[in-house]
């Protein structure tokens, strides 16, 4: 069936099976492979995208469920001229990644978290990222990166 989704501000329309998961719609039909499939069972958060501005796990949503709605992926975070989103910049500056596989999901979850708690504390950042796993166990610099973006942090 035809599924229309606004992805990173641009309209996408693809004829997909109802069982097509949002992450496959994004990767296989929109060609946006920045969103990763990790555990494929809504535990690891590698597939995190924004649905109408809120972090969700795209491996646990059928594309048809978001027909007509807006999705933002990691590809939609940087400005048109290539300037990185402040969260991307913070991950870069603070070495908030090792292998990088979890990073797109981490960045999407972290921006959604700070949208809800702009002045998040370290405890709130750690708890707020509980849905995202880093198999390199590089949490220290991930948390450091997010805190660098939090309101009131010393830049």
């Amino acid at each position: 069936m035809q599924v229309d989704v606004k992805v990173n501000g641009a309209p996408e329309s693809h004829d997909v099976e109802p069982r097509t998961l949002l992450v496959h719609y994004l990767r296989d039909h929109c060609g946006l492979t920045g969103t990763n499939v990790g555990c494929d069972s809504s535990s690891c958060g590698a597939c995190t995208v924004h649905l109408d501005g809120e972090a969700v796990k795209s491996c646990t949503i059928f594309a048809v469920q978001v027909d007509g709605r807006s999705v933002t992926t990691i590809e939609g975070m940087a400005a048109a001229d290539g300037t990185m989103h402040p969260m991307q910049e913070a991950f870069h500056t603070n070495h908030g990644l090792q292998c990088g596989y979890c990073t797109p999901g981490m960045v999407m979850a972290a921006t959604s978290l700070l949208e809800e708690i702009p002045d998040a504390t370290e405890a709130q950042v750690r708890e707020g990222l509980e849905g995202n796993l880093c198999r390199c166990t590089g949490y220290h610099n991930i948390v450091k990166s997010v805190l660098a973006c939090a309101k009131g942090s010393e830049k």
């Binding site: 809504s42 649905l51 972090a55 796990k57």
Partner: peptide
């Protein structure tokens, strides 16, 4: 319940 992403859905 779950994590923030799960609670959004």
């Amino acid at each position: 319940v779950g994590d923030p992403q799960v609670r959004h859905r």
